[in-house]
Nucleic acid binder design. Structure first.
Lengths: 90, 90
DNA sequence: GACGCTATGTATAAGTC
DNA sequence: TGACTTATACATAGCGT
């Protein structure tokens, strides 16, 4: 997107990396919120910048999302979710 | 995006809602992965469909992301993160 | 180094099979 | 209902301040 095409690998220039982080972080949080509303889904997103700062979004409370995650994980070990984890992306 | 413009509110037609969920869920997970790689960030995403199925992504292990979240939250109560939670979107 | 502005690359709403 | 296609809306890379 944008003026040029990019390859998905760590951005070396730290200024550029920080600018991209700021833009994409906002984009991701926005998409997460849209997904939750449009599809009536429960969503939780946690992002730590390389400097350790936390940014997050949760459709309800993050605590409840995490609790539900823990409960669900217990009952779904070795489930379809694992496919998602290896999702290759662009 | 797509052939028509949409408003961000719960999609009533359940078939359409499910199709949109599937597409946007994949898009969100992809973006999360890209952010983690491009910006060297630690990212965790948890999504529960309205039918209760879990989909997730984590740059490392979700467990470590959650632990880090809990630790960080303790030290940042009433922090800038709250701004993110009210991010208004489109 | 953070902010605002487009030209462009992507994600995706509809539609088709 | 799921998979594939296409036209568009949206996100954002590279620049200029």
């Amino acid at each position: 997107m944008g003026r040029g095409k990019i390859v998905i690998r760590r951005i070396d220039n730290s200024t550029n990396r920080q600018v991209t982080f700021s833009k994409r972080r906002n984009g991701l949080l926005k998409k997460a919120k849209e997904l939750a509303i449009l599809c009536d889904a429960e969503v939780g997103v946690m992002i730590f910048s390389s400097t350790g700062k936390l940014y997050d979004f949760s459709s309800n409370s993050m605590r409840s999302v995490i609790e539900r995650y823990n409960k669900t994980e217990e009952h779904q070990l070795g489930n379809p979710t694992s496919e998602v984890k290896v999702f290759s992306g662009t």
